[in-house]
């Protein structure tokens, strides 16, 4: 710190709210997280003016990496316009001066709770996932000290046992969102509570994913072009949520992750959960010029990495 810096006009807050020491600490941890994919790196996790558990982990990462030239997209459950996403987005913009967008193609940083965009992210983009519980072993080992040792030993036997029990009892895997994955053939990792539909999007992706849990004070990363495999058996496979036969009532999109909206008559109507994508489809239908990127799943529901998702034999469905 220099005298000139101390003497410059006072500001209500530091750039990006966090002081330079706090940002530097998060940055140091991010670099280590990238170097050890899927490993949870502890960090100080400062309190922010947003309640703990509301995205403070993701927010600290975004605030530490963003500069005035960034373009930020914030989504919650896929939606740009939910009040929580709006709130985080305006805080980020207010503290960093970044431009904001709902277009996944234009964003340089995408902070998300519970979803990845349907359009493929590209090199140079950073996806920041908010994480409520970073520990994939929590369900089988609530004691965090023991879980850390299990990661140290790469001892995931309890996890496999749990998976096996699910198959024996229910004939299928019972995990909904936060389906555990193995990263770079070493660390078991929680991908955050994204639906299983989104889990494959982390595998050999072009973009960098940073995952951060503010309350639990852990951050971790999936670098670009890194293997991310859901845990599954040789004969019982990981399955994404069934989206077949669902048509988005707003955009006509098919084979995208759909929100189920219960109707008064007991039926369901469907809306694609990625509102930025829906918005672009609607604009294109109106004849407006709009750039829509390639999606992870095509309209037939085929994932873009051939062979990654395996079709289950009918008797296991």
């Amino acid at each position: 710190m220099t005298l000139a810096e101390l003497a410059r006009p006072a500001q209500d807050y530091s750039y990006a709210f966090l002081d330079e020491f706090a940002k530097r600490e998060v940055r140091r941890r991010i670099l280590k997280a990238i170097a050890i994919p899927g490993h949870q790196v502890p960090y100080a996790s400062r309190e922010l003016p947003i309640a703990r558990g509301w995205g403070t982990g993701g927010l600290q990462v975004t605030l530490s990496i963003a500069g005035p030239h960034d373009i930020v997209k914030v989504i919650d459950q896929g939606a740009d316009d939910s009040v929580n996403a709006v709130n985080l987005r305006r805080f980020i913009a207010r503290m960093t001066g970044v431009a904001t967008t709902s277009d996944a193609q234009l964003a340089t940083i995408i902070q998300s709770r519970h979803r990845i965009t349907e359009e493929r992210l590209r090199e140079g983009q950073v996806l920041v996932l908010q994480v409520p519980d970073p520990e994939p072993l929590r369900a089988v080992e609530p004691n965090i000290s023991l879980a850390r040792e299990m990661h140290a030993d790469a001892d995931y036997a309890l996890m496999w046992l749990g998976l096996y029990e699910q198959v024996v009892r229910f004939g299928t895997f019972m995990t909904g969102a936060s389906y555990p994955v193995v990263v770079h053939q070493r660390y078991l990792m929680s991908p955050s509570p994204i639906p299983r539909w989104d889990t494959p999007m982390l595998h050999q992706a072009a973009h960098l994913t940073l995952l951060s849990a503010g309350r639990e004070k852990r951050l971790y990363a999936v670098p670009p072009y890194t293997d991310v495999r859901p845990i599954e058996f040789e004969d019982v496979f990981f399955q994404v949520e069934n989206q077949q036969g669902r048509i988005c009532e707003q955009s006509g999109a098919v084979n995208k992750f759909m929100n189920e909206i219960p109707q008064p008559d007991g039926s369901m109507c469907y809306q694609a959960s990625d509102t930025g994508y829906v918005e672009k489809l609607v604009r294109r239908a109106r004849g407006e010029p709009v750039a829509i990127g390639a999606t992870y799943y095509d309209d037939d529901g085929t994932f873009y990495h051939p062979g990654y998702l395996k079709e289950q034999e009918p008797d296991h469905r």
Binding site: Q11, D12, Y15, G67, R94, M95, G97
Partner: peptide
């Protein structure tokens, strides 16, 4: 409230 600005040193760090 004005958006806080980076100091030259903060910008270099970033």
């Amino acid at each position: 409230m004005a958006v806080p600005l980076m100091s030259p040193q903060e910008e270099r760090n970033h």
